[in-house]
């Protein structure tokens, strides 16, 4: 069966069809929840709640998007609720991340060279995870979906209910902010 046939069958109560639909997404939803929450407990709650809601709503899925986009949208709503009470780091405008020379100061940005010369893979990963879990999900989510889940900007916009320009802007700001955060870590390491 193709995806549409699987969805129609699942809507009619075919459990096997539903299982086949979700089989490609269980690992991905868990990974996404982990990256955005930064801890296993929340990741597990988000994972479970997402698939329970998918069962709850499968019969109202109108085939207006792919199954994956629909499922990610559910995960996004679950995460919004989960993260609602958390205080997260907010980002300033993109201009804040530009080299100082844009303001007339001749800055020297740190040339990273090979980051693996400074930190081991596991340490780099930990730094990135730590940064993303402290970010506001409004900014971290588009970045993670785009670059760590390899989703197109258009699909990210659909999943998050945002315009394409808004998604691009959030991705860029997060990318600049993460770049700056890592630069600081590398500078500290280089300076001993």
């Amino acid at each position: 069966m193709n995806e549409k046939e699987l969805i129609l069958a699942a809507r009619g109560g075919d459990r096997d069809a539903f299982n086949e639909l979700i089989s490609n997404y269980t690992d991905r939803i868990y990974r996404l929840a982990w990256k955005l929450s930064g801890n296993q407990e929340d990741a597990e709650d988000i994972f479970q709640e997402t698939f329970l809601k998918a069962v709850d709503n499968i019969d109202s899925f109108r085939l207006e998007s792919t199954f994956g986009t629909w499922l990610y949208s559910i995960a996004m709503n679950v995460m919004r609720t989960c993260f609602a009470k958390r205080k997260r780091m907010q980002l300033g405008p993109i201009e804040d991340f530009l080299p100082d020379h844009a303001n007339g100061v001749n800055s020297k940005l740190l040339d990273w060279g090979d980051p693996h010369d400074l930190f081991e893979n596991a340490q780099l990963r930990e730094m990135i995870d730590s940064f993303l879990s402290r970010m506001s999900p409004e900014n971290s989510t588009p970045f993670v979906l785009r670059y760590m889940e390899d989703m197109s900007v258009k699909d990210v916009a659909e999943v998050m209910g945002l315009s394409v320009p808004a998604v691009k802007s959030r991705i860029l700001r997060t990318r600049f902010a993460l770049r700056e955060y890592l630069s600081e870590k590398f500078r500290e390491k280089k300076n001993g």
């Binding site: 940005l109 990273w112 893979n121 990963r125 990135i128 670059y147 993460l178």
Partner: peptide, 18 residues
């Protein structure tokens, strides 16, 4: 260069297995 490496680093490394 560093913006490119930022994404490259994000795509490397461990994944949390289910």
């Amino acid at each position: 260069d560093t913006l490119r490496k930022t994404v490259k680093l994000c795509r490397e490394g461990r994944e949390e297995p289910l």
